[in-house]
Structure formats: structure tokens, C-alpha cells
Design a protein around this nucleic acid. Sequence first.
DNA 1: TCGTTGCGAAACTTAGGCGTATCGAAATTA
DNA 2: TAATTTCGATACGCCTAAGTTTCGCAACGA
Lengths: 201, 201
Amino acid sequence: MIQEPAVARPAGRPRSEKAEKAIVEATLDLLGEGMGVSELSIEAIASRAGVGKTTIYRRWSNKEDLVVDALATLKAPLPELGGTSVRDDLISLLDAMRRESAQPRSRCVMNIAMSEADRYPRLMERFVKRAITPRRQAMRAVIERGIASGELNPDLDVDMGMALLSGTMHWHTKWAPEGELAPDLAERVVDMVMAGIAPRP
Amino acid sequence: MIQEPAVARPAGRPRSEKAEKAIVEATLDLLGEGMGVSELSIEAIASRAGVGKTTIYRRWSNKEDLVVDALATLKAPLPELGGTSVRDDLISLLDAMRRESAQPRSRCVMNIAMSEADRYPRLMERFVKRAITPRRQAMRAVIERGIASGELNPDLDVDMGMALLSGTMHWHTKWAPEGELAPDLAERVVDMVMAGIAPRP
DNA sequence: TCGTTGCGAAACTTAGGCGTATCGAAATTA
DNA sequence: TAATTTCGATACGCCTAAGTTTCGCAACGA
């Protein structure tokens, strides 16, 4: 007796997984090279991936669907948090932002998310759910732990604290004067956000 | 004797200033409605402005030149700074950011500047010079005054302080949950940046 | 009045991308 | 082996927009 596969395979040549991956990779490559969603063309993707347009249209019905899937492919491996001190955990989170901003692919994807949200709401929604929300939750958890433990101000507005940390870090990734961010940037940001800019009496 | 005009006017019908303004206004309108630079079409601009394409091409040789000029048109009236306290001046600067972010036109222009910088470097360069640099200088001056007067930490890294203030404010304009920002947002940001999020002993 | 230039509208050429269809070859099941 | 499906390639019709040209009219100086 022959074991039936879990899903009966239809007759005919099976779809190539390799082609599928090549398509997604080509899409991310082109986006990572600074191409906006509207400049991105199916023909360019097919050419870059070395596949025919048919192979793309057989899987995705239009460009937006493809981009949505391609962005969803980007993994979001949050850094391991030591949990020893809130300061260390915040540094870990912010340093992950710094490292990601060094990769052109992540960089451009973030650009797209920030700028084309109005034009592609479905894309944005899915990207936020996949990439933004987990990071927000992690940071929120760390801050709340800090409040509970006394490492942070008990009256702290958590959302405002998150805005300070994320906003400052994002500001640097945007306006860094060409090239890499200082390796100790995350540490300096966290220390300054915690201490404030006013003199400590 | 007839007074010569400062610049000898060439023969023929003079160019219409009204048309020129209408073209720039139409460009800014369309950008303000969320249209990206690449979606923006000369035909749409001409139609919106009620002019022929010829009238546009007679003045600008391509789309990017037009957009550069249109963005340069946006005034940058920095707020008057009372100069009474550094805290008040910082609040004034950040509240100007908040008010500008409420105007769709400024909002979308900022979006473009943030996201399409790689694709249109000339545009970006001119926009930074016109709109970003003056604001940066103003904020830097206030912070340096605060350091000198003792209102801010004497060891403060000025650039880092600017990143905290601008980055946090920008973060709010980007991720505000739909609609307006709280009227007292600037005040709260300044106070929290000054005090820090760690408990004050 | 005449020559010159700008005006808006429209037609035109060129370029490129979309989404579909068709081809012969390849991969798979029955 | 026969039937079926996918493969990459290419051609097709359609559309949008760029940038140019032409047209008849308007506004100006001489």
C-alpha cells in the first residue's frame, strides 16, 4: 500500500520552489536598491529573478500582493534580552535597531513603511503587524518592568518613554552623516534618555 | 528721455507670473495629497493648474527641476523665540514642528524628504539647505545658550540633545494614532527630555 | 501695423509597463 | 506512454506619461 501524501498532489509538473524564492529575493533586492513600490515593475523582478512573468502571475495576482508577501518574509528575530538590568535590555533593543539600519534591505523597507503607508494601507498594516508590533511590545515590557523595579521613574508615561528611545534612535539612522553609526550609540542614547539633559542636582 | 528698465525686457508677450504660481501651487497640492514624486505627472500638474504643458516645459526642463523649485518655495518662518528660558524656547521650536505636521502639505513634503532622498539627491540637498538647516541652527543655538546659562547639563553632547528633541517629536508626528497631536505635546516632550526617564533621587 | 514671444489645447512620437496568450520543452502522475 | 501542469521566453494589445510640435489667438514693443 502506498502512503497518500497529506495533500493529494495534482497531476502535472509541480511548481518550482526555487523560482518562488528567486522572485521574492529579486523583489527585496530591488526594493533594497532604493526602488519605490511604484517604480518596481513586474518585468524587472522577472528579469532579475531569471523567471518568466507567467511564473509570477501564476502565484500573485498583482504587484501589491507580491510585495506584501516579500516583506512578510523578512524575519523579525528580536534580540535575546539578558534581563539583568533595564538599562542593558534597552541597549540591546536599540542596538538591534542600529544593526538593522546598516543593512540596505532593512533600511529601504523601513523607508517604504514610513513613506508609502498612505498609498498602500494593506501593505502597511501587514508590515506593522509583522515587524513593528513585536518590537514595540518588547520595549514596552522592558519599560514596565523598569517602573516596577524602581529602575525607572514610577510616574513615567510609558508611551512617551518609548517615543524618546525609538525616536532618538531612528533620528540617528536617518541623519547619520554618511556611513556607519557609532558602535556605542545605543548605550549613549539610553544613558542620555535615562538621565535627561538638564543638570542633575 | 525714457527710463530704461533695470533688465531690458525682450520683445514679445511677457511670461505670465500667474501661470508660474499656479504651476507651483498645483505641484505642491498634488504632493500634499500624498502623491509621490514618481507618481506625479506633468500632465496632472498642467491640468490642475489650468495651463498647457508647453507653459511648464518653457520654464522647467523636467519634473525634478520643477519639484526642486516648488519645495524651495515653502517658507520656513521660524517661530519667534522669547528668550526668557531655554525650556520655553525649546517648547516653541517643538510646537512649531507639531503645528507644521498638522498641515498635509508640510507633512507630505517631509515624507518625501525622508523617503526619497536616495532617489532624488539634488532635491534632498536643496530641501535640507532651505528647510532643515535653519531649524537645526536655531535649536543648536538654544541648547548652547542653555549650557552656558546652566539651564542644561554642562557636559551635554549638543547633537545628542538635538536628536532627543527632534527625534521624539518626529516620532509622534509619524505614529500618532490618527488625527491631531495633543496641544501640550511639545511641553511634555521638553520636560521629559530635560528630566530623563530615570527616577530623580 | 508688424514682428516677436507667450498662451492653452491638441496631436504626435517614443518609451515602458501591465496583464494575457502562446510556444516548445521539462517534470510529474496515472 | 499519455495526460497534465509548469517552465522560460516571447509576442501581443492596451494604457499612461514624457517630451515635442503645431495651431490659432493674445499681449507686448517698435
